[in-house]
């Protein structure tokens, strides 16, 4: 810091040198004073500039983070929404194998799927709604579900069920699914497939196919079975009192 100049200092500095007029001294003194105040003024403004600059930097960083967050939420929403209106590749393979082997024309009525994000939002929303305990348990147990509904273009048509069943079995087996149940009669065709590598009861996937002369429904669900089985065991139908004998 430049020391404050005083008249005495100036006089002392100029002793032994040329003598100056009082006016010169005063002018020099004023200049020194102005310079020193200017230095202080410079320090203040620099500080202010630095403060303003850092505030601006912080603001721009916050803006950037906010934009990033909004973009992320929009991406999530778009994935959630666009993912809602199609089925997974396994269910798609199930559908395609039926369509190819049935040798008929189909019209898609609807395809819809709900994944973990949508279910989480649904659970959050329904937390404020008065639901039956069993319904709430089921909602918490389900991890994902999808369904596709298709109508035969020709109306009521006789389908070659044996051919369709064989084709669907082959298509699903190549993707790691085993047929657990098939029920076929005049009115209905139902097949249920499960993953052949299923081990955990907390994440079980099943695919369902139903078919009749008018259309087809394919569906898939992924669920934690434990709460559902607990619920099933509690129901009155599992009690043995008054049970009708089973013959075959």
């Amino acid at each position: 810091m430049i020391p404050m100049a005083t008249s005495e200092n100036l006089r002392a500095n100029t002793e032994g040198s040329k003598s100056f007029t009082a006016r010169d001294c005063h002018a020099r003194l004023e200049t020194r004073l102005c310079c020193s105040r200017g230095y202080e003024a410079d320090s203040d403004s620099n500080r202010k500039i630095r403060l303003l600059t850092s505030a601006a930097t912080n603001a721009s960083e916050t803006c950037a983070r906010l934009r990033l967050g909004i973009a992320f939420v929009l991406a999530l929403l778009s994935v959630g929404l666009t993912g809602c209106f199609k089925v997974s590749s396994d269910v798609g393979a199930l559908r395609d194998s039926v369509m190819k082997s049935a040798a008929a024309q189909w019209d898609e009525k609807i395809e819809i799927g709900v994944g973990p994000i949508t279910l989480y939002l649904a659970r959050a929303g329904l937390a404020f709604v008065d639901l039956e305990p069993e319904a709430r348990t089921a909602l918490h147990a389900v991890r994902g579900a999808e369904v596709g509904v298709y109508k035969l273009r020709e109306g009521h048509k006789e389908l070659k069920r044996a051919v369709i069943l064989s084709a669907v079995d082959k298509a699903m087996a190549s993707r790691g699914w085993d047929r657990m149940v098939a029920v076929i009669n005049e009115r209905e065709f139902v097949a249920i497939y499960v993953r052949n590598d299923a081990r955990s009861t907390r994440n079980v996937r099943a695919c369902l196919l139903t078919l009749n002369g008018e259309g087809m429904v394919v569906a898939s669900a992924r669920s934690n079975l434990e709460p559902l089985m607990e619920m099933a065991f509690k129901r009155a139908e599992w009690r043995t009192e008054g049970r009708i004998p089973i013959h075959f």
């Binding site: 069920r161 005049e186 299923a198």
Partner: peptide
């Protein structure tokens, strides 16, 4: 194969991994 006349056809095939899962689920009750 399903009968050509449209009669009943039921096939149930449950393998060991599914049976094990059901056994674990049934253990408690």
């Amino acid at each position: 194969s399903p009968p050509a006349s449209g009669g009943e056809f039921v096939e149930v095939h449950i393998t060991s991994n599914l049976i094990s899962m059901v056994a674990r689920l049934a253990e408690k009750n």
